[in-house]
Amino acid sequence: MSAISEKLYRRRRFKNGVALVLAGAATLFGLFWLVWILWTTLVNGIGALKPELFYQMTPPPGSDGGLANAFFGSMLMSLLAIVLGTPVGILAGTFLAEYARRSLLGESIRFVNDILLSAPSIVLGLFVYTLVVKQMGHFSGLAGAITLALIVLPVVVRTTDEMLKLVPSQMREAALSLGVPQWKVTVQVLYRSALPGIVTGVLLALARISGETAPLLFTALNNQFWSVDMSGPMASVPVVVFQYAMSPYDTWHSLAWAGAFMVTVFVLCTSLIARAIIARRKVAND
């Protein structure tokens, strides 16, 4: 009897050990790819990682140059996308969390928002091409920004919705019982306490749009010159990376990898900042 239970116990211990080792191995497996991919971009891009990268324009093949116009274009379009997408996203998120929490309309919008969240971005690019580029009669940084805003939107809606739901209802009730109108409660009480979460959402959205290639090709096109004209074609880092990576020339290749490396570093920094904000908030709540 006791021999059997001893055997059973050992088998259970053994099974447990194997499972936990496998769990650790799975984690190493995930980290392995991260390191490998980051290492690849760094090794290939290091040749072009010079100060010129930030103040020279995209060069023709064989000449030296940088990605200044692409960095600037990406920055401008991403900024405008955030400016366009964030307010609408926060308002829609507010609607879901505060006004339509259990209604059919609210649930349908939440569902549609989730589809938008994972819709292939090339499809959104085609949509904006028909809607904006064809109507305006030319490619423009503005159309690019609108496409990116459509990608920002669902991310912000989702996080605002989640964050407002986390605000304890006592806060709403306390404010409402003092006779404060609901919009003021929302803006001055709820937004204030959900702010870190919403900022995180915006940063995540920014990280997501910095690497978008396909939807920009048919909306913002690209520009080999310095341009601040949002109504004309505009350069962006991912599109330049794509075009240079597909070319035969070595100088273009290393610029492409350097651009890829910079985008990745930027995205990683943004995510880390977002994470730090969440972490600080959690500490504050404890």
Partner: peptide, 17 residues
């Protein structure tokens, strides 16, 4: 944003694309 857009439109005649 409006300022950027307005400034941009008036900035220059569009280049050939």
């Amino acid at each position: 944003a409006g300022f950027i857009a307005a400034g941009a439109v008036s900035a220059q005649a569009a280049d050939i694309t």
